[in-house]
């Protein structure tokens, strides 16, 4: 579809000034600008937003200054435990169904406990495949799967990055203080 004439905005660049056409004053002004930036960077002033990552982290600075807002950050997953320390998941497959990246694989079995019918004997979550959208957290009817503010997970192999049930429960044990259920 052609663009209508009234939608076109015609911008005519302002005519080049005589002082600009000789380059020199403009060159010196440009040098001044970069020098200001240099001074600001050397002094680590407020212009310099670069952080030295492992020592300085975004979650340590206020949100207003570009910090990370922990309460709704979507990082690595965890499987919550209930009061008795059992896995809270009831193997309803809601998260697996909701997951747009198909990264959750659950195998359910009959629960040994009285308060629920099923529980997962296997709960694999491919952290490399996950897009961290948080749909699993939304879908879960018992608040069993949650996303934590941890984002610096590493592994040496792809296999290592497929988190199984024990690993996901271990994440819960580690992050229970940081993000209470």
């Amino acid at each position: 579809m052609p663009i209508a004439d009234e939608d076109l905005i015609v911008i005519t660049p302002t005519a080049i000034k005589r002082s600009e056409s000789t380059f020199l004053p403009e060159v010196f002004m440009g040098l001044g600008t970069t020098f200001k930036h240099m001074l600001g960077s050397v002094a680590r002033g407020k212009r310099n937003k670069a952080m030295e990552y492992p020592e300085e982290r975004r979650e340590d600075i206020p949100v207003e200054e570009g910090g990370l807002y922990k309460p709704n950050y979507r990082g690595v997953h965890r499987l919550n435990r209930d009061e008795d320390g059992r896995v809270k998941c009831v193997a309803c497959f809601m998260c697996q169904t909701a997951c747009p990246a198909h990264c959750i694989h659950i195998e359910g079995a009959a629960s040994p406990w009285d308060d629920r019918e099923k529980y997962p004997i296997k709960f694999d979550l491919d952290e490399l495949r996950c897009i961290y959208c948080g749909m699993c957290e939304e879908a879960c009817p018992v608040d069993a799967i949650e996303l934590t503010p941890i984002y610096d997970i590493v592994g040496l192999t792809r296999q290592e990055m497929i988190f199984d049930k024990e690993k996901l429960l271990a994440v819960y044990d580690k992050t229970i203080e940081a993000k209470p259920m």
Binding site: T34, S41, A50, E52
Partner: peptide, 13 residues
């Protein structure tokens, strides 16, 4: 370093 400073970074350190 100069490149980093002009671009508001820290540079190799």
């Amino acid at each position: 370093k100069v490149a980093a400073w002009t671009q508001d970074r820290i540079g190799p350190n």
